[in-house]
Amino acid sequence: MNWQLMWDSLPRMLGGLSLTLQLIVGSLALGALVAFGVALLRLSGNRVVETLAAAYVFVFRGTPLLVQIFLVYYGLGQFEFIRESILWPFLREPYWCAILALTLNTGAYTSEVLRGAILSVPQGQVEAARACGMSRALAFRRIVLPVAIRQMLPAYGNEVILMVKATSLASTITLMEVTGIARRMIAQTFAVFELFIVAGAIYLVLNFVATRLIKFAEWRLTPYLRARA
């Protein structure tokens, strides 16, 4: 084990950290929006809309992320009409292709978590809100959503960890994030073990921070549970 090499590789690998973080934060933020929309569509009561939303979730949960990334990056670029559309300036860049694939993927998983959480809000609370004279929208915004978000946090924490790890697949479409840099350096030094261990340690730290953040959010959102202590 070449400790010196591992130590020396750290600054270069951390150079990819900013891109990794952008991919994580960007796709989680956009994915949350998609999830919110899709969860609402699935609960809309309109059969057609519900089926479409369910099909989206089914496809993106049922296929490997790697296939999705290649399909977005290499697959879409194959078509003339896409290359001539206004979307091409975005889809031309591997960065946006990665964000798109990751967003659609996490959007599908998160919408399921959110949907479950919304359904778990006791009907009595909604009825009580309606009885107080709240409109359906207001009751949803003030009662259902806050309770659901609190409810979904532990499961969402798992999804965040999965996304942190998933960004490593962006290296397969020429992006130089942490794993991409590790692979590039291995091609130069042939020290597979050392460099992948350093990369693995970076992801472990990222995930540790992510879990702490989620735990903190959980703590902030459940003051009523703390009061008992």
């Binding site: 960890i161 490593s168 597979v192 261990i197």
Partner: peptide, 15 residues
């Protein structure tokens, strides 16, 4: 569960 699956596979493949 904390490091990317891709890295686990690489590590095992080479180690």
């Amino acid at each position: 569960r904390g490091i990317p699956e891709l890295l686990v596979i690489y590590l095992l493949f080479f180690g």
